[in-house]
């Protein structure tokens, strides 16, 4: 499916108001649920002890998503370069990779890589790769790098092929070479269109990487799970949910700000 063209620019004034509303509603909803559900509530001492752990978990979640999306964009750039070559079998292979990683659940990908690496650990040891796959965290980052590369390739490729044909014609009539046309003319425009989907990609990986908690990684959800297991107090899940909402909201606001900055020169849309 084609990606949407330029999305309408958000209202300039509303960023801070929205941020405030976001924080307030997350806190309000969290406290309300806490009162209703927390069997006896989390007392101040528990909270003070748990907060650093949860924040460390949040840090790990941010680390996993940033590293995976960055490595994914490097791999995605390679895949995109492959897609622009005239070799049919290479293209087919890259599309098959994209279909495989976009068509399956991230949790199944992680299980395949994590438990699969355990199954063939003899082979991996002989190939001197076992030190890498032995660590659950590495398996998580490996999985989401491949996963994100598949999505990012599709996003950028979609933005690129949807650019007006005249852009290429104009560049060629100026005598620019194919690679200069791609790097200096087409990609900057495509990346601008792709900015919002790419921002959503970071937010998506931040959320989806919570399956890391299923393979013993203490990311934000893993930490909350551990705390609930220790204290039997459900409230830690609610705290984690609030932190995730703030994280995803923060990513959204950052993307809005970057988009405003980068589209200053364009007339307002809509």
């Amino acid at each position: 499916m084609a990606e949407a063209p330029f999305s309408p620019r958000p209202d300039r004034s509303s960023g801070l108001v929205r941020a405030g509303l976001l924080v307030a509603s997350a806190l309000g909803a969290g406290l309300l649920l806490q009162l209703l559900l927390g069997s006896n509530g989390i007392d101040a001492a528990d909270f003070a002890a748990a907060l650093p752990l949860l924040l460390r978990g949040l840090g790990l979640t941010v680390f996993i998503s940033v590293v995976s999306v960055l490595l994914g964009s490097l791999l995605g750039a390679g895949l995109l370069a492959g897609l622009l070559q005239p070799w049919g079998s290479l293209k087919t292979g890259i599309w098959a990779f994209c279909i495989a990683f976009r068509g399956t659940p991230a949790i199944a990908q992680l299980y395949l890589i994590y438990y699969g690496a355990g199954e063939i650990h003899g082979l991996l040891r002989d190939a001197h790769l076992w030190w890498f796959f032995r660590e659950p965290l590495n398996c998580v980052i490996f999985t989401f790098t491949l996963n994100s590369a598949a999505y990012q390739t599709r996003i950028i490729h979609g933005a690129l092929v949807n650019l007006p044909r005249e852009q290429t014609d104009a560049a060629q009539s100026l005598g620019l070479s194919r690679s200069v046309t791609l790097v200096r003319i087409l990609l900057p425009q495509a990346l601008l269109t792709a900015l919002r989907p790419l921002g959503n990609e970071v937010a998506k990986v931040a959320k989806a990487s919570s399956v890391a908690s299923l393979v013993t990684v203490l990311d934000l959800l893993g930490t909350a799970k551990y705390l609930v297991g220790q204290s039997l107090d459900f409230g830690f899940y609610i705290l984690a949910a609030m932190l995730y909402v703030l994280l995803v909201g923060g990513i959204r606001l950052a993307v809005d700000a970057i988009e405003r900055r980068l589209t200053r020169h364009l007339p307002p849309v809509g």
Partner: peptide, 29 residues
């Protein structure tokens, strides 16, 4: 504002955590 916040919350919470919230919290509610 409240419906936007409700939808925004469920777009922001990881689905796995939403599942825990519904499975355990929903049952308690």
């Amino acid at each position: 504002e409240s419906s936007a916040a409700f939808a925004g919350a469920f777009r922001g919470i990881p689905e796995l955590l939403t599942l825990f919230l519904v499975y355990i919290g929903g049952q308690r509610l």
